[in-house]
Simulated assay, not measured.
Amino acid sequence: MKKIALLGFSLLLFISCKKEEKTAPTSVESGISGVFVVDSTSTLSWIGSKQTGKHSGTIKIKNGQFTVENGKINDGKFTIDMNTISVGDLEGEDKSDLEAHLKGMKPDVVDHFFNVAKHPEAMFVVTGFMTEDGSDMLEGDLTIKGKTNKIKFPVSLSEMDGMVTMTSPEFKIDRTLWGVNYGSKSIFNDLGDKFINDDIVLQINIKAKK
């Protein structure tokens, strides 16, 4: 009897933990309206992973603006400065080496990842805004390395003291859709366990003023 009770308690605890892992719904404050210009402190956070670990960092959003009407994001355009790719979990030579690798600053790795000499900017253009499963979703065309694909992710928008903040929970994109193929086992079949996951985790943190 004690074993049955213990099993039941364990199952209840497991279910409770699974429920807590669910991402909270995002929302846009209904009173926000106007045209907002992106502040220079705005960033895009990233996480790249492989079998043996992961790295993370940020990329600066160079400029942009978006229009909100009664809490609905109607349009927007954001320029991402790929020259500002930064690795946040390393220091010294390891940090600078990986940053150079990602940017394509070394002669032998120019097109392994983002080839910033040829493609110094990425672009996101808003094409839609909708509510799905209790979350406000922003849809748009993301252009990286000259290739454009549509993406969609949850956003929250809030306003305080004249500053609007647009954030998102973490969301994923498949880098190979933009020709970022280095170390992808879906592209190369001879990598063994030396592959890098196709998914890149992104998260936006945008500050803007009227």
Results as ranks from 00 to 15, higher is better:
S49M: 00
S49C: 00
K50D: 01
K50L: 01
K50Q: 03
K50T: 02
Q51L: 14
Q51M: 11
Q51T: 11
T52F: 01
T52S: 10
G53N: 06
G53V: 06
G53S: 04
G53H: 04
G53Y: 00
K54F: 04
S56D: 07
S56G: 06
S56C: 07
G57T: 06
I59F: 00
I59W: 00
K60P: 00
K60R: 11
I61N: 01
I61Q: 02
I61G: 00
K62T: 02
N63C: 07
Q65L: 10
F66W: 05
F66L: 08
F66N: 04
T67I: 05
V68M: 06
V68F: 07
V68E: 05
E69F: 07
E69Y: 08
N70S: 14
N70R: 13
G71E: 09
G71W: 13
G71D: 10
K72I: 15
K72F: 11
I73V: 15
I73N: 00
I73W: 03
N74E: 15
N74K: 15
G76I: 09
F78C: 11
F78D: 07
F78L: 14
T79H: 14
T79F: 15
T79A: 15
I80W: 10
I80E: 10
I80A: 12
D81S: 15
M82K: 13
M82W: 10
T84M: 12
I85F: 07
S86K: 11
V87N: 05
G88R: 11
G88Y: 06
G88V: 10
G88H: 06
L90G: 01
E91I: 07
E91V: 12
E91S: 10
E91C: 00
G92I: 08
E93R: 04
D94K: 13
D94Q: 12
K95A: 02
K95D: 02
K95Q: 08
K95S: 02
S96W: 02
S96D: 09
D97K: 14
D97S: 13
D97H: 09
E99W: 05
E99C: 10
A100E: 12
H101R: 10
H101N: 11
L102P: 00
L102D: 02
K103N: 08
G104Q: 11
G104A: 13
G104F: 08
M105A: 15
M105D: 15
M105R: 13
K106N: 14
D108P: 08
V109S: 13
V110H: 09
D111K: 14
D111F: 08
H112W: 13
H112Q: 13
F113V: 05
F113L: 07
F114R: 02
F114A: 05
N115L: 07
N115T: 09
V116K: 01
V116F: 04
A117P: 01
A117C: 04
K118C: 04
K118W: 06
P120A: 09
A122G: 04
A122N: 01
A122S: 12
